[in-house]
Simulated scan of single mutants.
Amino acid sequence: MTEGTLQIDHISKRYGTRTVLDEVTFDVRAGELFGFVGSNGAGKTTTMRIALGVLRADSGEVRFDGRPITHETRTHIGYMPEERGLYPKMKVLEQLVYLAELHGLSANDAHRSAENWIARLGLAQRRDDEVQKLSLGNQQRVQLAAALVHDPSVLVLDEPFSGLDPLAVDVMSEVLREKASTGVPVVFSSHQLDLVERLCDRVGIIRSGQMVATGSVGDLTARAGSKLVVTAPAAPPGWTAGLPGVQVLETHGATTVLGLTSGSDDQTVLAAALATGPVTEFSRRRRSLTELFRDAVAEKPVGQGATT
């Protein structure tokens, strides 16, 4: 299967009168790491299961490289579910070989690939252990190996970093970057937003079954505005009162963190601060993905529809 883009096109899913997904649309491009974030129950797992064909959408379509997903396409997708999807009493090597053969690899190729990923993910000492006897972190590594062992053309990972120690997070991150560098589109969900911000090329935020923001982290945070950090040791409480378009977000001693609405003038703020005495800090700070996510959950506008 050639390199291509995974497209989620106006997917909707309902259970009775409850709408789980409402016209969800985004794409994951070849060679891209796409972070899919949202609160518990927002629709991330349902979207991924529809992409895999585990669930059927009520409307909309999933495509790869411009063509509808078929059974043949699905054999080239690597999927890592949030719940453990392994056979607990099978040994690690035995299980990975079995799964690789299910995806069409020959016995020799399956063994070669299984051994490669066992070594790469630090499981060599556990290769002959039953999965149920592994720690949760090592089970997570085996789960990733199971998603990679057949050399997939697309990776769909549901909470792959859950339960991993910092070293394992680094290994997982390196593997995902490596797969993306070969042209594989990689989409993963995570509640570790600092990791998503550091790792991903683009991000999609879903709330209550609807996509509320899509774009690069830099683009989304830039359009969502920035904070102004002002340290004025002699400024009295309420010194920003009356300044147009200025909202006090936080105060820490002499430091005030301000939010500015579109069109507000930071120079007016500076003049007001200087009028109180010396100013030892005056800087803009771009909002983080975590703050952007909190706004999305709180149903504040976060900058919809970027496609960069």
Rank of each mutant, 00 (worst) to 15 (best):
I8Y: 06
H10V: 11
Y15K: 05
G16R: 00
R18P: 00
D22P: 04
F26R: 02
R29A: 07
R29Y: 13
A30D: 05
F34Y: 13
S39N: 15
S39M: 14
T46A: 02
T47N: 01
T47A: 12
I50A: 06
V54W: 11
A57G: 09
D58K: 07
S59D: 15
V62D: 10
R63T: 13
I69V: 13
I69T: 06
I77K: 00
E83N: 12
E83T: 08
L86F: 03
L86G: 00
K89G: 12
V92H: 03
L93S: 13
L93W: 03
L99S: 03
E101I: 01
L102V: 11
G104P: 04
L105F: 06
N108E: 15
D109S: 09
D109Q: 13
A110D: 12
A119P: 02
A119I: 02
L121G: 00
L121V: 00
L123N: 03
Q125S: 12
D129L: 05
S135F: 01
N138S: 07
Q140V: 07
A145W: 05
L148A: 00
D151G: 08
D151F: 10
S153W: 11
V154L: 07
D158Y: 09
L164V: 01
P166S: 06
V169F: 06
E174T: 14
E174A: 14
L176F: 04
K179S: 14
A180M: 01
S189Q: 02
Q192N: 14
L193C: 08
V203E: 06
A213I: 09
K227H: 15
V230M: 03
T231V: 00
A232Y: 05
A234I: 01
A235V: 08
P236I: 04
L243R: 09
G245I: 10
G245Q: 13
E250D: 15
A254Y: 07
A254C: 06
T256Y: 10
G263P: 04
D266W: 15
Q267W: 12
Q267Y: 14
Q267C: 10
A271L: 13
A272F: 13
A273G: 08
T276Y: 07
G277I: 01
G277L: 03
V279T: 06
R287N: 11
R287Q: 15
S288M: 03
L289V: 07
F293H: 07
R294Y: 15
D295M: 11
G305W: 07
A306T: 14
T307F: 12
T308W: 10
T308Y: 13
